[in-house]
């Protein structure tokens, strides 16, 4: 497994676990009251921050745990990186458009912030899945 492939796995797993932790926290706070009234901002910021720190620590741990592993990156790594980012970008756009429409329709801040967060997470997951699948199979020739 190349260095970049391991990084893709780490980011994929951290994105999924981070969002699962956030969702668990919010749903446990809801306790039969409307979701839109649940305090979410601190939990959202903490889980995003924790996910970034966890990613960095996991990458540092991976590097320390395999000191002799090659850090070389080549054209294929860069092409796979670009393809993954390109595929994941669709969810970022969908989140932005959705949030814009919800703001115009006067939706509650809770739903707007959560739609944006969900789309960021889906973008990260789709990006990660695309990269690990392409690493295992082959880059498509368009």
């Amino acid at each position: 497994m190349t260095h970049w492939e391991k990084r893709s796995w780490i980011r994929l797993v951290v994105a999924a676990l981070g969002y699962a932790a956030y969702l668990t926290l919010i749903l446990s706070r809801a306790d039969e009251r409307p979701l839109a009234t649940v305090p979410y901002a601190a939990a959202l910021l903490w889980t995003v921050g924790a996910a970034i720190v966890a990613s960095i620590l996991a990458e540092v741990g991976m590097a320390a745990g395999t000191p002799r592993a090659s850090r070389l990156t080549d054209d294929r790594d860069r092409e796979i990186g670009r393809l993954g980012d390109h595929v994941g970008q669709s969810f970022v756009v969908a989140g932005a458009v959705g949030a814009m429409l919800m703001a115009m329709a006067d939706w509650d801040h809770f739903w707007i912030a959560n739609l944006i967060y969900l789309c960021f997470v889906l973008a990260a997951i789709l990006t990660g899945v695309t990269k690990v699948v392409v690493y295992r199979r082959s880059l498509p020739e368009w």
Partner: peptide
Amino acid sequence: GVTRQTLIAIEQGRY
């Protein structure tokens, strides 16, 4: 100057 995985992918016609 490529990774072993890339060389394998090239050799197998996957890249």
